[in-house]
Amino acid sequence: MNVATTDLTRRFGRNVAVAGVTLDAGPGVFGLLGPNGAGKTSLLRMLATVIPPSSGRIRLLGRDPGVYGQRRQIRRRLGYVPQNLGFYPGFTVVEFVEYFALLKELPAAEVHRAVAVAVERVGLGDKATAKLRTLSGGMLRRVGIAQAIVNEPELLLLDEPTAGLDPAQRVAFRALLRDLGQQATVIVSTHLVEDVGAACTQVALMDQGKIVFHGTPDELVARGAGTTAAGDAPLERGYSAVLAEAGS
């Protein structure tokens, strides 16, 4: 398993953001659904080694991120797009992607080609030398995705990656996700249930820091069948039904 967590908990003061999550994920696209404040972002930040857990165990790519040397090896093979992508307004697209390629310790001889591949892969070839401050929100999102995939990660963590993308870009992005999921473990946190239906092979639903459902998108659809749960699409009804059950 590329991701294995056991009883993972994260507290911020008295608030328990993630409450005893046990999760395994191998190659493929893994959707993480849940309402605001469910703990998705805190879970992703722990998997991205940005924050340590308060308790519990994590193993990523077969290594322990609590050990410096192993954490460094994980980070070389990790891609991460945070919910709020910070960027340097004066950098160009290429400079930004190259900056993170260097910080991920890509071999110097491979950096320029890897940057070109990543920028082309997200469809920003014609904006490669544009300053980030001149780009739209959707383009900035794609820049964030480019820096995440520049090292061809084995573990890719995306927090609300389709926010700000227009419908055509979202369709293209789902195709990219499916492509990346052939080799890597891709974990996507999203509010958009249709993204999960279109791209994910596995889905987990979080509520109040806990995983209340883990299965395939079809299994989530089945949970909503024959119920009066709210939703315009079968997946949305499954999502609502599971949340209603968890809350009752």
């Binding site: 080694t49 940005v50 460094r72 991460y80 910070g86 993170f100």
Partner: peptide
């Protein structure tokens, strides 16, 4: 002060 601080916490260079 570092806009990309969150990202820089997830990279190999410590």
């Amino acid at each position: 002060v570092d806009p990309a601080w969150e990202l820089s916490c997830s990279v190999a260079v410590s």
